[in-house]
Computed example of a mutant assay.
Amino acid sequence: MRLLLTNDDGIESKALYILAKELEKEHELIIAAPSNQKSACSHSITIAESLIIKKVNLPNISSDAYSISGTPADCVRVAVHKLLDKPVDMVISGINMGTNLGMDIIYSGTVSAAIEAAIYKIPSIAISSELKENCANYYSAAKFVSNIIKTSKDNLIKNDLVLNVNVPCLDEKDIKGIKVCGMGDKIYDNFFIEDINEAGDTVLKLTGRINKNHKINTDVYYLKQGYVTLTPLHYDLTNFKILNEVSQWF
């Protein structure tokens, strides 16, 4: 298959390199990633500034690679319009350093790059790896995304779907399997710590506590049990459950 590889942690990310090395074994790749860290930028795109594209040589990677001075969504847009000489079968976004579970999906640049691909009718997979004490098993994540591509490609390429995949920080042999499930709730109970600087301005620093109470049968729940989680997503945010009810209000 022909794949476009991107991320939100930047072109120099070790996790991107490991994923590219794994996928090159069986697929044709083109890599387009932000020139620097763009985590939690959600689905923002660059409008007021020009984008700078640079050809990059990644060590021991034969695929063409480009850094783009924009967001993950920018990278997909630029690749589709300017870098691809022929269409790709799928977009792979990741491996993200840390999970994208529950409500964190909304803020994720990794997931948003995959959703941008779906807007162009290109199926996509967003892949994230759990961090534990600043360590992650990117090799396990790379192996799983490779297997998911093999398993899902015939069905996935017929649909403009996004598969959001999270892999626990475990060796491949210790992972219990894959659970297809819905989004969970908040990972963190966020709040601001307030201070005053020397100029008298109010300074807010975001912090948070881990929310330990999670619904069962969700991505947050199953990852804690040692499973890879897979959640199908789509960019259509319409709440179809109450569409008819709301129409009756007017």
Rank of each mutant, 00 (worst) to 15 (best):
K150L: 07
N137M: 07
D160W: 04
S112I: 05
N100G: 02
F144V: 11
V162T: 02
S93R: 02
E133R: 09
S129G: 14
L170Q: 09
N164G: 03
L156C: 07
D195H: 07
I106H: 12
Y107D: 05
I175V: 14
M103R: 10
E194Q: 10
S128R: 05
D185A: 08
K121H: 12
D104S: 13
K143N: 13
E194R: 14
I115R: 04
I119A: 09
C135Q: 15
Y139A: 13
V162K: 00
L204N: 15
Y120D: 04
Y188V: 13
N96G: 12
N147I: 09
V162Q: 02
Y107P: 03
D174C: 11
V203T: 10
F144G: 00
V145G: 00
K186W: 09
A136S: 14
S152Q: 08
L161F: 08
I125N: 02
N147M: 15
M90A: 05
A199D: 12
S124Q: 07
T110W: 08
Y120F: 13
K153T: 07
D174L: 11
G94P: 08
G200T: 06
I148C: 00
E133I: 05
N134D: 13
S146E: 13
E130G: 01
L170M: 11
A136V: 00
D174I: 04
I149H: 02
V111H: 00
S140P: 06
N164S: 10
S140G: 02
Y188K: 11
M97F: 13
T151E: 13
I187F: 03
S128K: 03
A118G: 08
I157E: 11
N155H: 14
P168E: 03
G109W: 02
I148A: 01
A117L: 04
A141E: 07
D160G: 05
I92Y: 00
A199H: 09
F192N: 12
K132S: 11
F191P: 06
N197W: 08
